[in-house]
Amino acid sequence: MANPVLKPVAGILVLGALFALPRFVDSPYALHMMILLFMSISQGQSWNILGGYAGQHSVGHAAYFGVGAYTTMMLMHAQQVAPWLGAWAGVGMVAVVALAIGSICFRLRGPYFVLASIAVAEILRLSAINLTGLTNGAEGILATDLPPFKIGATVITDFSTKVPFYHAGLALALATITITYGVQHSKLGYFLQAIREDQDAAHSLGIPISRYKNIALVLSAALTSLAGSFYGVYVGFVDPPTVLGLDVSVQIMLICIIGGMGTLWGPVLGSLVLVPLSEALRSNLITEALVKAGVVNADSRTGLFLKENLSHAHVLLYGVLVVLVILFMPDGLMGFFRKLASRRQREAV
């Protein structure tokens, strides 16, 4: 990418292709996977701002995801507020929650911060279960009737297909990437990275640590909340474990760590790997592909074994993958590629 013209042109081409994709792909399954991919990118990128750039490794991002999802769904279900408006109420709610959480967690460092972030998310999950009047408790909120999206009197879409969700997801993913880019290249980004590298040194340089940490937190939380609202509306159902559970937090963090934290493309790369991979493992597409390629006979002993066990073992394989990545690519895929590139460069010299 030495040519300075090539980069933006390539970018615009990719964007155009992504935008136009639903015109050429009419498989809802493929679009659904793309939507999950966009959601994953937005989640990962939101966490990245706080975890990757500011170095505050929250394992409680489910709190923001869930509060956003719940606020939007509650407003839509009980007050018939359109989700594209409700999502902003969600952002407002989450900002308040984030500041409250920040005031508790930012007094703590390292492992204490991690544990506090988990505790707060768990408190919210348990509250969602117990505050049955507000959240409908463990039964969750089911709201599937979306009002048509209108500008003036013209109906833009009535959400009868996946295409509007696809475009909304794409917009959300692009927005989070753009905001991260903005953060990375601003004073805020430099301050955050200074805090990440050495909090005490940053403090002695006169950087108002607490203010910048809180800015990063609110930004990260607000974007996560949007992803949560998008999830709720798209799936049409939220309940405490699926949007506020600990595994949601871990999944969000995983996207970044697999891809590479504190880098603009890390969460994108992480999502590109994790989303298709977990789907392929889950639905046993791997066995199917092996059978189709003629490597294994479907009715042979190996074929039957794979069919029977691979779908049961997909979380196991996922766990193995996580362990391997941490041990052998501690800086994620981005770090791995960088290392490869620099080695090649050195060899070339």
């Binding site: 975890g51 394992v59 492992p111 760590i257 979380v315 196991l316 766990g319 193995v320 993958l321």
Partner: peptide, 17 residues
């Protein structure tokens, strides 16, 4: 720290599954 956390989470997943 987060790599240590994820490693133990990964090991936990392997054990339970």
């Amino acid at each position: 720290a987060q790599n240590q956390i994820l490693l133990t989470i990964g090991l936990g997943l392997v054990m339970s599954n």
